[in-house]
Amino acid sequence: MLDRLPDSELDRFFEEDCPYGDLTTHLLGIGRQKGRITFSTREETVLCGTEEAGRLLDRCGARVGRMEESGTRLSAGVEFLVADGEAGSLHAGWKVALNLLEYASGIATRTARIIAVARAVNPAVVVTTTRKSFPGTRKISIKAITAAGAVPHRLGLSETILVFRQHTAFLGGLEPFLGMIGDLRKRAPETAIMVEAESVADAVAVAAAGPDVLQIDKVAPADLSALVPQLRKLAPMTRISAAGGINESNAAVYAATGVDILVLSSAYFGRPADIGVRLEPVV
């Protein structure tokens, strides 16, 4: 989706790390020496953020000579980003670029593993991620999950209709709301209507009303396996998604229930990718 974060985002990251210049490099007097920075994988990794890291180094005064694209899957020990420039420029961009690469590639790698285990049992299942990324990181987080093959569940409140119990509570409950689905479809004919259900009984009631997507939250996989065929008969045009605590360890179990979509946040949180950096002078 997002080819590259805007420069304004990169400037924000750089300003956080180097607001007044690099004191160490300045005092050592090495800033004008020619050098090279090389980033490489230390483990199997799905890359993300290479375009941003390269652009950041470029804005610091370096010149990128080689770069693999986001979404590239690499084994351990592969060099994927190389830039030349003065030592001052390379040191200024080093850690900011590395942090961006490790966190974004960590999300991408984790997402790819979740997709792999889910599609091993249900090749048609789609993995989507919520808007529960850490505040301030949504753009790079969304780039990371899409680089791995997932899609955003929701990018925000403005372009999607997803009705929760927290909405229907203000309408007198689930039953009064279900009668409004037809009107919602008329008022927003280009937008899918998604409704969440938190129990088997509510899922059946919602399916009968015919939303575009029925999102079933925190229902155990065993119950979901029995429920999905019933829902298919009741509402054959409604897509079914499972949500609530889905992660790499249980994604296959949820995918095996026959749902169309897995909705999760777990891809955002976990260990960053392990990426090595070599900084060296060039004669």
Rank of each mutant, 00 (worst) to 15 (best):
L47W: 02
A226K: 09
I161N: 07
D7P: 00
S70W: 14
E15H: 06
G182I: 08
S75F: 12
F13L: 06
T128Y: 06
T45Q: 07
S249W: 07
E9N: 05
E16H: 05
M194V: 05
E43D: 03
P281I: 08
C60V: 02
D223T: 11
A267K: 02
S158K: 13
D274V: 05
M67N: 01
S70V: 08
G61Y: 00
V163M: 01
E43C: 02
M194N: 04
G182Y: 09
R138N: 10
A220E: 15
P176Q: 07
F170E: 10
E68D: 15
W94I: 08
L81T: 13
L56C: 00
A124K: 15
A124D: 14
T168A: 13
S225P: 10
G106M: 01
A188N: 15
D22I: 05
D58M: 03
A226P: 01
P152N: 13
G245L: 03
A251N: 07
A150D: 12
H167R: 05
M180D: 13
Q230D: 14
T109D: 05
R239V: 02
L10R: 01
G35S: 06
L279K: 00
N122W: 09
V126K: 12
N99E: 03
T109N: 02
N250F: 02
D7I: 00
A256L: 01
I216C: 02
S266H: 11
V117K: 11
G31V: 04
A108K: 05
T111V: 06
V82M: 14
A169W: 15
L10M: 00
G156S: 12
K139A: 15
H91A: 10
K143S: 14
E159T: 13
A207D: 01
D217Q: 08
L155M: 09
Q230G: 13
H153C: 01
D223K: 15
E68R: 15
P236H: 11
D183H: 06
T146I: 08
A76K: 14
E198L: 06
N122D: 10
E196W: 12
R42W: 04
A251L: 04
I140P: 09
D7H: 00
A87V: 11
H167F: 01
V228R: 00
D17L: 02
